[in-house]
Nucleic acid binder design. Structure first.
Lengths: 156, 156
DNA sequence: TATTGTTATACTCTATAACTATA
DNA sequence: TATAGTTATAGAGTATAACAATA
């Protein structure tokens, strides 16, 4: 009757409470994302920046030639949402927009000194979050996890 | 000037285009979740069920004694959102609600024959999605990935 | 008093289409 | 014509608080 379990050849290593649901990729990806979001959100909260805002600053600082659309793709959000996000970053005094000379349709978004300082403080916090989040894994396992996710995400 | 890169001791194994952003945990978790959602959504679309609806049926079928709240936790959604989800599943004729005798605050949500048939067809599709999604990895690497995610998620 | 399911509300995010200005 | 940024809008999801029934 519980045929979905029979299809799964794993011996259900941990917690048989839900009969296999918690070992499905969908469950694992959803919950790992949810938990990491909660962790970083709480850790960054004292310096007044959200995980998404930090990620946006991080992208923008690294590559000045990225268009808003390319940054949106890196953040995994829509370009229309990106407009509001940059509006917000600009209103907080963390970035400035100006048209790109060689293609005036595009914007160059650069960090202000305030934005750069906040990014650096945030980066230290995010580094700690990454370590804390992967604390259950050995250094080798953590590296393998990142490489495996990278390989899967890089597949188009 | 690009000091955030200097903080990262990895030699940026793939695609230096974004200077490290795409190897952050936040990026990897977000995009892996996003892509898997798109894959399963498209694959399940022909039989008229969403990934979340399938996941809900899967939870409910495996453990009849789970309360709506416990299923909501497994799905990673709020209990208030779960009400609307079960409403929808019930309206489609896939599940039925009835009060649990020993604790009449709780509902027992059982699958109808229609719901069970749909779950089984969906499960075969999801199995294929999991294989396809991890195709870039060897069987051992895929198993290690699942175990690593499981270990990280299981940490409270 | 605490919990389950429920409803209501406001807020955020997503999806889509259209508009403008540039190319 | 095609693309980048922008705006508008509808729909979905999230967060929060409250309430009734039950424990």
């Amino acid at each position: 009757m519980i045929s979905a379990v029979a299809l799964n050849d794993q011996p259900t290593p941990r917690s048989g409470r839900d009969g296999g649901t918690s070992h499905r990729l969908g469950y694992l990806f959803k919950h790992v994302h949810l938990r990491y979001e909660q962790l970083t959100s709480a850790a960054l909260e004292p310096i007044g920046i959200s995980p998404r805002e930090w990620a946006a600053l991080n992208c923008l600082d690294e590559q000045h030639s990225l268009s808003q659309r390319e940054v949106a793709d890196l953040l995994g959000i829509d370009r229309t949402r990106m407009v509001a996000l940059v509006d917000e970053l600009e209103a907080k005094g963390w970035v400035k927009r100006r048209p790109q000379p060689d293609d005036r349709r595009k914007n160059i978004v650069t960090l202000t000194n305030t934005g750069r300082g906040l990014l650096q403080r945030g980066s230290r916090i995010v580094d700690e979050c990454e370590q804390e989040f992967l604390a259950a894994l050995s250094a080798v396992e953590a590296e393998q996890l990142k490489n495996a996710l990278d390989a899967v995400v890089a597949t188009e």
